[in-house]
């Protein structure tokens, strides 16, 4: 099933027949996907399907073996993760990966490292993030390693937002969090998405959750994309319902 192309808009991200892996172990085979401005897209799949690997490619942590990666129609070649942060791609990694020994606020400030903004500008961004996540504003001087899981995830997303992204990649936001917290964070992300008009790619194992947040989705199976389409299409797809929703 072909992905739904928003007519008139050019994709900000294009992966075409992308293959890559770790050492000699291949993890992705001919993955193609497109991300357009102002949309929330989900990447779904079971354990080991290659979801994190796709995000690593997009954020420049992992180079491609084969295929193309284009950013705003320009080939991304020889770029490292720092280069892509400069270009507005921020990756909120699996397991949050906070700087545990730094305070909440220091973690957030580090998110703006690439931008070389003035202190006043960074303070403005900080207030902007705190505004969305008042829970962590209260704990700005607490060490990140001592936060609860939900608070850590808010700091991780906040740190990503501090990089002023045009594309935000979020890996398994819901992992290990109570459903109320997950809902609360996704509601906030919807607000941010509407306010900023950014593109968000979310990785989730829970298909129902992912499809309720995203407008489109790609399904990864064993390192290849097996199905893609609008959330509604996937919801109505019997094979998918059977495989991922158990109904």
């Amino acid at each position: 099933m072909a992905a739904v192309v928003k007519t008139g808009l050019k994709p900000i991200i294009t992966l075409k027949n992308a293959s890559t892996g770790y050492g000699i172990a291949q993890a992705l085979w001919n993955v193609s996907l497109e991300l357009y401005p102002r949309e929330i897209v989900a990447l779904i799949g079971s354990n080991g399907a290659g979801k994190t690997t796709v995000l690593r490619v997009l954020s420049g942590v992992l180079p491609l073996w084969n295929g193309e990666y284009r950013l705003n129609e320009e080939a991304v070649k020889g770029y490292t993760a720092p280069d892509l942060v400069h270009k507005g791609i921020c990756h909120v990694p699996e397991g949050r990966q906070l700087f545990f020994g730094l305070s909440v606020e220091e973690n957030l400030r580090m998110g703006a490292f690439a931008l070389k903004k003035s202190r006043a500008e960074i303070n403005k961004s900080l207030e902007w993030v705190y505004n969305f996540f008042p829970e962590i504003a209260k704990r700005r001087n607490q060490l990140a390693g001592t936060l609860s899981g939900g608070e850590q995830q808010m700091v991780a997303i906040g740190r990503g937002l501090m990089g002023n992204p045009t594309l935000l990649l979020i890996d398994e936001l819901s992992l290990g969090l109570a459903p109320v917290i997950v809902d609360r964070i996704y509601e906030t992300l919807q607000k941010i998405y509407q306010e900023q008009g950014i593109t968000i790619l979310i990785v989730e194992q829970d298909m129902e959750l992912a499809l309720s947040v995203a407008s489109r989705a790609y399904v990864l199976e064993n390192g290849s994309i097996s199905v893609s389409g609008t959330s509604k299409e996937l919801m109505d797809n019997d094979k998918i319902r059977e495989a991922y929703l158990g109904v």
Partner: peptide, 11 residues
């Protein structure tokens, strides 16, 4: 503290 995270924020 965290090399991967440092890389991801552009260091």
């Amino acid at each position: 503290l965290n090399r991967l995270a440092a890389n991801l924020v552009g260091i």
